[in-house]
Simulated scan of single mutants.
Amino acid sequence: MSVDTAETATRPDPPPIPSRRASHLVMLVTLVGVLAALILLGFFVGSGSFSISEVWHALLGQGDATTLEVIRNNRVPRTLLAVLVGAALGAAGAIMQSLTRNPLADPGILGVNSGAYFAMVVGAVVFGITTTSGYLWFAMAGAFLAATIVYFVGSRGVSGASPEKLVLTGVAAGSIFSGVGFGLTMIDPKSFDTIRSWQVGTLDGRGWEEVTIVWLPICLGCLVSMLLIPYLNGLALGDDRARSLGIPVGRVRAAGFVIVTVLCGAATAAIGPITFVGLMVPQTVRLLFGPDNRWLLPMSVIVGPIVLVGSDLLARVITPSELPVGMVTAFIGAPVLIALVRRKGAET
């Protein structure tokens, strides 16, 4: 027996390579831990100079009135609202990309958020709506209108609902909705004062009222979306093959667009139009977990809050006066979109 053969025979077996499922579970636990840490950090970071002990006691319901007001009625609901809106936009983006088989699809890019904002402006200018509960229904109607128009126009022609056509149609529709909405606020100063905090997307000044109103539609929308997972995986194979597998393509798309409408409408009613989160989140999850919607959609519900809570923390500390969170997500999302387009161009 040669020396090499003897060494090979006595060499211990290499450690087993962990399965993909095990690695996914490890990443899942890690992401949940990151989200929990960011939520806790959101309670401790913000305007006002409070020590860690003061914040902790305020969370337990102890301390002076000022500390309790800032911590329990400002930072806590603001952070929880960021979690809810991030989950809504992450899930909506994943559903939209799966329904259209377009990795560049996003509720913001496809004009859904702009449609919700436009409807909110109409509610404020024409009907005098001033409450989040009133905005919620208008925002959902506007989101559904925008999604319907974009998909109907973008699917016309021989090539059907191609990614390029849907993106171009969405950008055009979003620009029209945003422009008309902004014009309406300019001719009505009272409505402008009412709606201006929603125009760029901000969590500043949001409290328990917004959380109380939107948590139910967002949570229900995220839970119901999980029922679409097997159908979304079937749609990834193409409409004809999905039909051959017994998937009701039309009804699945209709249900998906209704869910996206509810999620985007509630998110926009709460803090205003937020762009790029619905694009960034599914793309990040797809890189980590792959294209299987059994992982893509649930993980988007976790990564979405990570992105939005993290952006809100940056918005609080990046300048002496807090930036709107929508501005931070735009700064982050624009380079991501450019990178995705360049990557897609390099592959084709």
Rank of each mutant, 00 (worst) to 15 (best):
S2K: 10
A9D: 12
T10L: 13
R11V: 13
P12V: 11
H24D: 10
L28H: 11
L28I: 13
A37E: 07
G42P: 04
S47I: 11
G48K: 07
G48M: 08
S51L: 05
V55T: 15
A58F: 02
E69C: 07
V70F: 09
R72C: 14
L84C: 06
L84N: 06
L84Y: 06
L84Q: 05
A92S: 15
A94H: 11
Q97D: 07
L104W: 03
A105D: 08
A105R: 03
G108F: 05
G108D: 06
V112C: 02
S114E: 07
S114N: 13
G115P: 04
F118N: 00
V122C: 04
F127I: 09
G128L: 06
T130A: 14
T132M: 05
S133F: 15
G134P: 01
F138S: 12
A139F: 04
M140D: 10
A143N: 04
L145V: 15
A147G: 05
T148Q: 08
Y151D: 09
G154E: 05
G157Y: 07
P163Q: 08
E164Q: 13
L168E: 12
T169I: 08
T169V: 14
G170F: 01
G179K: 02
G181M: 08
P189W: 09
P189E: 09
D193T: 14
V200N: 11
L203D: 01
W208Q: 10
E209H: 14
W215I: 15
C219I: 15
C222Y: 01
V224Y: 12
V224F: 15
M226Q: 14
P230S: 13
A236G: 15
A236Q: 14
G246P: 09
I247V: 15
G250L: 00
V252H: 10
V258R: 03
L263D: 01
A267V: 00
A267R: 01
A269S: 06
A269C: 06
F276G: 02
G278C: 03
M280C: 02
V281Q: 06
P282S: 06
R286A: 10
R286K: 14
L287D: 07
L288A: 12
F289I: 11
R294I: 03
S300H: 02
S300M: 03
V303Q: 13
V303A: 13
P305I: 02
L308V: 04
S311Y: 01
L313T: 09
A315F: 02
A315I: 04
A315S: 10
V317S: 01
S321E: 14
P324G: 01
I332S: 06
G333V: 00
R342D: 00
R342K: 05
R343K: 14
E347F: 14
T348N: 11
